[in-house]
């Protein structure tokens, strides 16, 4: 059997793959957080609960209406995104003039309430969610075996992340968004409905979380706790990448997923803490994060 640094290649590539999968979810979630933080200046602690809602709405569409995975992929982001827009209109919009802390407390409280409601309804044990038939099975890449669904998650996540980056950095719509992040009052005085743009942006960030939830459903179990477990790591990713940096959150998401996977191979004891160790080092050396700019 071939080995690299005394580790069988099978194990190495296997963990690398798991790292890439985790990285895909880190990237999708931290991207949504970055977009929301950029324009709304709110640290959206509800993000994990909204990711969980994505998985549950997909489960419900399947069990109650018989709609499959692909329908869920299409319908869940707008449904959960709409609940996000409602939250923004009814609650978050009252907080923009106050300190960051209020937004953080409100969204944290909301996350607890939403998780509690789902736990009450569905219990704590995970619910199964079957993989779409088109993506079952896998292929042998020569050096490793790649399950089709996992390959799909990595590719889809990359496409969505790069698409979002392109829209924000290279299009007219994105230039409104970037300008409103800097000086919303002036952008509005040019004739753009900034409050509506803020609502839609929050809805979009939440929709990204829900989409990640649908994609996660066949891999991880659908459970009320799934978002809370993940979101702590995602916040570390966001801090390392730099609050509000779009490209930073994508690159750090994938990068840290891989680092975590490799740690599992070479020093498994540290695999749960490595991201937080990196966070501490980055914060000490570059308080604004790797890709962030000091405000």
């Amino acid at each position: 059997m071939t080995e690299i640094f005394g580790v069988p290649t099978q194990a190495l590539f296997g963990q690398l793959l798991i790292g890439l999968i985790n990285g895909s979810f880190y990237a999708l979630l931290s991207l949504g957080l970055a977009v929301i933080f950029g324009l709304l200046n709110i640290i959206n602690f509800t993000h994990g609960a909204q990711y969980m809602m994505g998985a549950f709405v997909a489960y419900l569409l399947g069990s109650k209406l018989g709609l499959g995975y692909w329908w869920s992929l299409l319908l869940v982001p707008p449904i959960v995104g709409a609940t996000g827009m409602l939250i923004e209109r009814l609650m978050l919009s009252k907080l923009y003039k106050l300190d960051h802390l209020y937004g953080l407390l409100l969204t944290f409280g909301l996350a607890l309430i939403i998780q509690g409601l789902f736990r009450n309804e569905f219990g704590t044990s995970g619910l199964p969610f079957s993989m779409p038939a088109e993506l079952s099975g896998g292929r042998n890449l020569g050096f490793m075996f790649l399950p089709n669904y996992r390959g799909w998650v990595i590719v889809a996540s990359l496409v969505i992340c790069l698409g979002t980056w392109f829209v924000i950095e290279k299009t007219k719509l994105g230039s409104y968004l970037r300008a409103a992040t800097e000086n919303p009052a002036l952008v509005q005085a040019f004739g753009i409905n900034v409050p509506r743009m803020i609502t839609l942006t929050y809805g979009f960030g939440v929709a990204l979380a829900a989409l990640a939830g649908v994609m996660a459903a066949p891999i991880y179990q659908v459970s009320p706790q799934m978002g809370a477990d993940l979101i702590i790591v995602v916040f570390a990713v966001v801090v390392i990448g730099g609050m509000g940096s779009i490209l930073g959150s994508i690159l750090t998401g994938f990068g840290l997923g891989i680092v975590e996977g490799l740690t599992k191979v070479f020093y498994p004891e540290a695999s749960n803490t490595v991201i937080f160790v990196i966070m501490a080092i980055v914060l000490a050396a570059k308080p604004a994060g790797l890709f962030g700019t000091q405000k």
Partner: peptide, 16 residues
């Protein structure tokens, strides 16, 4: 009110 995250052309074309 020049936007630093926009280049000159984007700044110029920003107001609808």
């Amino acid at each position: 009110g020049i936007f630093s995250s926009l280049n000159v052309e984007e700044n110029l074309l920003l107001p609808p």
